[in-house]
Nucleic acid binder design. Sequence first.
DNA 1: GTTGAGCGTT
Length: 474
Amino acid sequence: MSSYLKVAEDEGEEPIELPSEDDGTLLLSTLAAQFPGTCGLKYRNPESKGIRGVRLVEGRLHPPDEGWGQNVYYCVFPKENKRKSDDHLENSTAKTKRMETKAKCSDLIILGLPWKTTEQQLREYFESFGEVLMAQVKKDPKTGQSKGFGFIRFANHESQVRVMSQRHLIDGRWCDVKVPNSKEGAQQQVPCKVFVGRCTEDISADDLREYFSKFGEVTDVFIPKPFRAFAFVTFLDPDVAQALCGEDHIIKQTSVHVSEASPKTDFNNRYNAAMRGQRDQKGYGGGGYGPGGNGAHMYHPQQHQGNMQGGPAPWAQGGPANRGNLDMPNLQALGITGQGTAGGGAGGQNLTNPLGMGLNLSALPMNPALVAAALNQAGWGLIGNLQGNQGTGGGDAAPPAPQYPNSGQFGGGQQGTAPPQPPAAAGGFLNWISPGGNQTNPETAQNNTGQQQGPWQQRDGGKSQNFMKYEKYE
DNA sequence: GTTGAGCGTT
């Protein structure tokens, strides 16, 4: 049984009660679900009056010796520390940091916003990830009704990268953040997402997440409703996703088949079919990840060069890449659209990856040190989890004791059935948490109830045919 | 029953 501890964003703020795991620890992911961007906890020691930090090991926050007690714990945000530590960064970190600040930000689209979320709320939510230059909620000009999506722009690219690599619980709904379609070269390439076919109805999102977590951190599971015998699983690391493609896996005694997740519109499918086998002539900056780049498998061999100077890094050996031999990060999906100007003159770069040697994001899950450097400010707790997950290396090595960074749902098993929709509590974020501390797992809610979809069905009326923007590719 | 929902008056 989990107990609850009080956590507030800062002193003077109202605490939220968060559930601890059976072992008494608090998952950083549980914390981050309520306080995005948090990297740790601190509290004021009642005896010494001093501020104490909470031990964080592999994504789990450990209670003080005397237990969580009635203390109110406060979130630690990376930005707070940044100013002080900036000048004392180790070289490698400092370099990474400089590079990151050179990468340009682009607008990001936020999909799935609650109708009631305002621009101010949107801004406030994302400010915990970094300076927000712009926040918009798109509305019907006549009625003022939100269209359920919006845009933000960060000042720092690191914030953008961070925000794009996870989903966001905003006002009780899970929202996706992506580079908008309208941005050049922003097609989702090198999918972190795989298609899982031949699913049976008794395979839940949790089952999929649990099963696939042994290969790498799973950032999302999507099961279309009504049941259609397939699902999508998204990994943090595109290498992991790629490596699994083509394989059969047995989940709950069912053989499921993993393959590439293809773009979802009819147009895109037609487009892919048309482009397959052709060389990409334009629009994809050197070819590669574009649907027409290299046949069904979107990796372009040349693109390895940028990352492969002198061969793979030792820590990469035997990693998931071993099965797919794929080293390119999902740069574009992370919003690195080719505008960056990473310093240094390493060879082997190419047009598609101007950041080349600098920011090998695909390495993140396998190289905690680089993770630490690249996501330094984030804290994230990924670090511990990634360390755990890298055990996938060596091909058939026994999976590490799995960490489940995103939920706490495994600690508690099938905890709670979510309400069909979070209550539209009045005002403010997080009010959907019932006062009794009766938290549900919104992710489970979204993926398992099949009803959470809320306003989505009504949003488009099935008339979205925004194909015009693709004309340039024909 | 093997491909998902949503993309910007500037």
